[in-house]
């Protein structure tokens, strides 16, 4: 079953909600920068994210 999960973008560090079903492999993109380098946010990911620079949008 799909449930709302937080994803984050490995390019612009945007966080966004996604209807996520672990059994389903789906194409996903960041609603802000359009990158497909997005992944489910885990505690480890949140930690590295805090010290990561990102691409400026605009």
């Amino acid at each position: 079953m799909a449930e709302s999960t937080t994803f984050y973008c490995l390019r612009c560090q945007n966080r966004f909600p996604v209807q996520y079903d672990p059994k389903e492999v789906k194409e996903r993109s960041c609603p802000r920068c359009g990158s497909n380098s997005v992944r489910k946010e885990t505690p480890a990911a949140a930690e590295t994210q805090a010290r990561s620079p990102s691409v400026k949008i605009g």
Partner: peptide, 19 residues
């Protein structure tokens, strides 16, 4: 690979994916 990068202390941002 992103998960393994984290385990190795690398920033997963260094591997990018695009369609």
């Amino acid at each position: 690979i992103w998960i393994q990068m984290e385990k190795l202390g690398m920033r997963p941002e260094r591997l990018q994916l695009d369609w």
